[in-house]
Simulated assay, not measured.
Amino acid sequence: MNLRLEHISKSFENTRVLDDVSFSIQKGEILSLTGESGCGKSTLLRIISGLEIPDAGKIILNDEEITDWRPEQRNFGFVFQNLALFPHLTVRDNIFYAIKKKRQSFDELQGLLEMTGLKGLDKRYPHELSGGQQQRVALARALAIKPQLLILDEPFSSLDELLKAKIREEIFELLRSLQITTILVSHQASDAFLIADKLVVMRHGQIQQIGSPTEVYQKPVSPYVSDFFGASVILKGKSENGSDIQTSFGTLQITNPRTEDLQLFVRPENISISTSHDYNLAGFIVKKEFKGPHDVLKIGNENSEELISLETERCSLDVGEAIYLKVPESHVLIFQ
C-alpha cells in the first residue's frame, strides 16, 4: 500500500486552509500528522478520508488516483476523537456496524476481541465500559473492515494522563505487530515520538518539516518546530567575520558565511554548566526554581534581556552568582 498526497490545497470562504501539501506513506509505516490547533490537520484528514474534495492536488493510492472517491470506496478505518460509539449497540454490534455482511464467523469476532483486550465484553454496552475499553472497541471496529489505511484522529484526548499512557502503549504495540499502515493525527509530541516512523509538522496550512522523530527533534528547520517538540534555547547572534558568532553571553566559534542577525538553536540537554571560566559562554543566575528532582535555572547577562532556561540536577549556586556554560558548536543550529 502506498498513499501519496500531491500539492493539496483547500480554501473556505477565501481563507486558505491548506497550501500545497505533499507527502507519502508506505505500507506498514506509521505517520504522525501534527501541529498546533488550526494548522489544517482536520481538513487534511477529511480530504484523505473522502469527506472533503481539495480545490487543487491529487490523492494517489497504489498508483491510482482516488481524489474524487467516496469514503466507502477507500476502505480506510477510523478511530475518531469522540470514538463515535453507538450507545444502543453492544460491543459486538458496534464492531461490525460498518460491515454490510454481518455474518462474521465466531472465530473472527473472538480474534478481534482478544486482539484488542475485549474478550468476554462483547455483550456489554458502551456505558458499561471504562474509557480505555471504549477506546479498544473503536479500534476493533476500525480493524474489522481490514482497512488499507488506519486513521487515528486525536484518539487519546479524552483520557486522563495515567490511562492515556497505558492505552497508547498497548494500541501502538498492536499496530506495530499487525504492520498496519497508520496516520496518527495529534498535537501531542509524546504521541508522535513514541510510535511514528515519520512526522509531518504543519503550520498555517503548510508543511514545515517532514522527517523521523530523531531528525525533527535534533535538527528542526525553524524555531517553531524546535519549540513544538520540546524545550529549546534560542539565542540572538551576529557573525562579523564569517567565523565567530557573537552572542550576549559570549562567542561561539562556528563557521558561518552569513553576517546578518541570526538565531542560534540548541537543546538544553546539550548544554553543560560549571563554575569554570574555560567554558565558552558566561552569565549569572537570575532565578532558581525547585522542581522536585531537578532545579530550573534562569540565566541572564548584563548585555541584554535574554534568558537561558536550563533544567539541572541539584545546583549549589545561588541567585546572583556567576555561571559558565559549555555549548558544543556541533550541536548548534543556525536560523535566519
Rank of each mutant, 00 (worst) to 15 (best):
I273R: 05
N301L: 07
D197A: 08
E215M: 06
T312K: 07
F76N: 04
I167A: 08
I167P: 09
L307V: 13
L184C: 07
G77E: 02
P126L: 12
E154V: 11
I25T: 03
Q110E: 14
G38I: 00
L31G: 04
S330M: 06
L262G: 04
D93R: 15
F78N: 03
V21I: 13
V91L: 00
I99D: 01
S232Q: 11
F76R: 04
T181H: 11
L162M: 06
I95E: 05
G230T: 03
K236T: 15
L317H: 07
G131Y: 09
A165V: 05
L139H: 12
M202V: 01
P54Q: 09
D318W: 03
I207T: 04
N280C: 14
E36Y: 12
A98C: 05
E313M: 09
L152G: 11
Q246W: 00
F229C: 00
G120S: 07
F86Q: 10
D55F: 00
D160N: 04
D122F: 08
D197C: 10
I245N: 09
R4A: 06
I171K: 07
F23W: 15
S42M: 09
E108N: 10
G111E: 15
L33E: 08
D107W: 02
G35E: 12
S130Y: 02
T247R: 09
Y279S: 00
F80Y: 15
G117Y: 09
I254A: 08
C315I: 02
R168C: 04
H7T: 06
E65V: 05
K10D: 00
I48P: 09
P213G: 06
L61K: 11
M115C: 13
S49A: 15
A192S: 14
I66Q: 09
N75E: 03
E173K: 10
K326R: 14
P71L: 00
V201C: 04
Q133C: 10
L162N: 12
R314F: 05
G40C: 04
T275P: 00
E65D: 15
I180K: 10
R258A: 02
F96T: 06
L44W: 06
I234V: 14
S248C: 13
G117S: 08
S304N: 06
G292E: 05
E169P: 03
P54F: 01
K10N: 01
A142Q: 07
G242V: 06
C39K: 12
Y125S: 12
I99F: 00
S274I: 06
L121K: 15
M1T: 11
P71G: 06
I145M: 14
L121R: 13
I183F: 04
G57C: 01
R267C: 05
S177H: 14
P87I: 04
F106Y: 06
K288W: 15
Q209I: 08
E65N: 15
K238T: 13
I210V: 14
K288R: 15
Q188N: 15
F172G: 01
G237T: 09
S274H: 07
P155R: 11
E321L: 07
E161F: 02
S272P: 00
H294I: 01
R74S: 05
V201Q: 05
F76G: 02
F76Q: 01
D160L: 02
K27N: 14
C315P: 01
I59M: 13
